[in-house]
Write a protein that binds this DNA or RNA. Sequence first.
DNA 1: AACGCCTATACATACGTATTCAGCACGCTA
DNA 2: TAGCGTGCTGAATACGTATGTATAGGCGTT
Lengths: 343, 343
Amino acid sequence: MQRRPTSFDIAALAGVSQPTVSRALSGNPSVSESTRARVLAAAQKLHYKVDKNASGLRRQHARTLALLFFEEEQSAEGSLINPFYLSMLGPMVRRCAEAGYDLLISFQQLSSDWHVDYEDSRKADGIILLGYGDYLEYRPRLHELIERGTHFVRWGSSGEGQVGTTVSSDNEQGGHAATSHLFEQGRRRIAFVGTASPAYPEFMERWRGYCRALEENGITPDPALQVNAGPSEAAGRAAVEKLLSEDIAFDAVFAASDVAAIGAMHALQDIGRKVPDEIAVVGFDDIPAASLSSPPLTTVAQDSVQAGKALVEAIIAAVERGSAGNRILPTALIVRGSSVARA
Amino acid sequence: MQRRPTSFDIAALAGVSQPTVSRALSGNPSVSESTRARVLAAAQKLHYKVDKNASGLRRQHARTLALLFFEEEQSAEGSLINPFYLSMLGPMVRRCAEAGYDLLISFQQLSSDWHVDYEDSRKADGIILLGYGDYLEYRPRLHELIERGTHFVRWGSSGEGQVGTTVSSDNEQGGHAATSHLFEQGRRRIAFVGTASPAYPEFMERWRGYCRALEENGITPDPALQVNAGPSEAAGRAAVEKLLSEDIAFDAVFAASDVAAIGAMHALQDIGRKVPDEIAVVGFDDIPAASLSSPPLTTVAQDSVQAGKALVEAIIAAVERGSAGNRILPTALIVRGSSVARA
DNA sequence: AACGCCTATACATACGTATTCAGCACGCTA
DNA sequence: TAGCGTGCTGAATACGTATGTATAGGCGTT
């Protein structure tokens, strides 16, 4: 085992000075082509790679982004990450690589006294925040970040009360599309399963789209049809059971998340109600399991590829150019079996 | 906006020299308690964080691990990561944090000329490899890594023809448990859906367990019941359709992956065969969708929490102590609705 | 021929930390 | 009181790169 080669070794081998090596490798145009070629050959030969610690130290940045998941306290062991976030992971990594950044990944307990070390310690130049759980709870931390001048971008809605640069799906439009679709299928008593509280801004926006679609069709949203439910199978199941136990009539369910929608379907199937013939179900997210359920779930797809790319692009813009605008991505209704009654 | 504080700033504020600050913060015992307290207070006050680039440069390591996904060529856009790998992510990140390491994440096309930059460029001290796709195809690269003295640990079986340190589930035992369970349910014609080729060593081991379980019960495995299928819904579906079209009788399916198992169930349900009453189905992996399918899928769970932890511990052992042994994790049969005929 | 300008390279230095070595003060022993 | 270890701290330095500044050579202009 040899000592790792440095730019001085390359310089010696190529018969130039160390600074020339640095310039040649970084594509500086003031190096002649013939010299650059010699340097490149030498570097190749010795398997030389720039030492990122030294490079980062000198340039005062790391060309690294940090991906930070906020998580609810308790999930520690279960450690299930929101499947939609997970599906953004691939595209994010890929976009980072294209842009020449590395991606660091980490969790943060919502409660913990997180002084986001990454930027402080120059390990990352910017941060992508993926929060789940109660938004109101971590909002104060975001203000802290802004005060300290930390570069960050967040996935989440950008409406009132929101802070920082965000990228999000057009939740309102998605909710509208899902509800309109159900209306077109002849459904008139459409239940909304998902909380309508500002603690979950995305859900609230989906609910707004739901209301708008109903109103456009001359229906006044019935508060009895709105049932709170978080994004879990059990919550979706419980929501439907509540409707049933209270004898509230409904012929369709629009759930604000796929996982809850699947729970709702299970609850219906358990008591023998046919999906979609008696009750149509639409979800939101298009998680992988959506197409695997039976019947396959009609849902509003968030484009995780675009989402991941947009997030990375936004944070890079913030880091390199100092600012980035909010971005809202379109959603697409994916019609599958759970919402269309068989002929 | 201030300039970032350095250890010199802390030194000045605490009335000591820079080296003392470094020692105080790193817990060097030769610093007196009173001095350490003063330094800590100053650091706190200025929000000081050690610059990891400088620190890494000086110490010649990064306290960072890299997580590398090998992927098949084409998945580029779809970018679905194996759900089991995804479920290891949380535990890995957590274990890294506990051990004081950061985790970098990245993909590699199987074909690309990857000269795993991370360790070369001192950005990471060791690498965790998560490969999917044809093992035989990337095995030569692993030899390269070993030759260059790179520290790495791989998820995958450790049997013959395998290279490097690995952590894996006990696939053989899992296959045995699944098959024994089906036998106990009275099934005698159990199909194996999943390839039995050394290109997919895990599948092959599961198949071995399947064969052993049958033989222990006096059944000779019938080659006609072994159908090749990769880990995709479509492959599982196709496998069952093949059995049906060839008129091969079977009363149970053991699929080497959950996704294929779900595909198999769909194919059966499409033609009106009842699961589990007519045909029982068991999968492997316990992906999140397994419990959401209907009927919920009986499967062999791989403990992703233990897996993630073991992988991180192994690579840290390799980095810090120069070596690590292989590790095989137990699996657990999770009995759900898809394999137990209703009373 | 003298001058200025441009190109390509070398020289010198700074980034912030961790560590080796030297030094100082103190207390103990003889 | 001289000698010596011991416990803390400071001075000096090295890690490997990137960049501002200086320099050498080549060419065109008057």
